[in-house]
Amino acid sequence: MSWDGIGMILAAILTIAIFSLLYRDNPFYRFAEHLLVGVSAGYYVVHYFYSSVIRKFAVPVFGQGDLWLLPGGVLGLLMLFRLGRKVQWVSRYAIAFYVAAWSGYLIPSVIKERIQAQIVGTLPPSPGSAPWIAILGSLLILVGVVSILIYFYFSVEHKGAVGKISQVGITFLMVGFGASFGYTVMGRVSLLIGRFQFLFQDLPQALGW
């Protein structure tokens, strides 16, 4: 039997070991669970090390002589100070660098693409420029977005007109959450289909059963 064939049988055994949790917690499941954590961590750490330390630091700095990449390595080393209790504060420099850099380029992009573009998309087309059904749909979206934003505005008490508009917002949110639930079920079922396709179609086919 080929290594791939052996691998598929092993994959099937491990798949069943994890499914065994559905009956009840048992040592086979626990074994598979811990093996998954160990193997995954081992797999990831190799990629993390190669892609960051080797490829983004060692190759450009030592291979291509690009000294501008040197501070990246220094900041990365500072991060390792988290491992020592007394010197943990040193890692704050790396964390501050990372979080602030992210914050810096996030501000204009989020304002432009997430806030401004979404607000523009909410404005209904002017009458006559689109079919009336499209205009009605746009108005519905406008009502929904505005009422939800008012619902999220906690600086005023949700009473009177604000309270009523908030209720409209909650109504839209509930329909949205319902749609999310429907899609969540779809996603989870698809994952199960994938495993059953492996057990009942791919495995027998590969092994010539």
């Binding site: 806030i115 519905l140 949205g176």
Partner: peptide
Amino acid sequence: DYPNLAAKRGILIGVGLGMVSTAI
């Protein structure tokens, strides 16, 4: 396309404003 989109957009804009203020 409509009520769900409005709900998700409301959340997107709300969270986006929160992200920007936290980043500042």
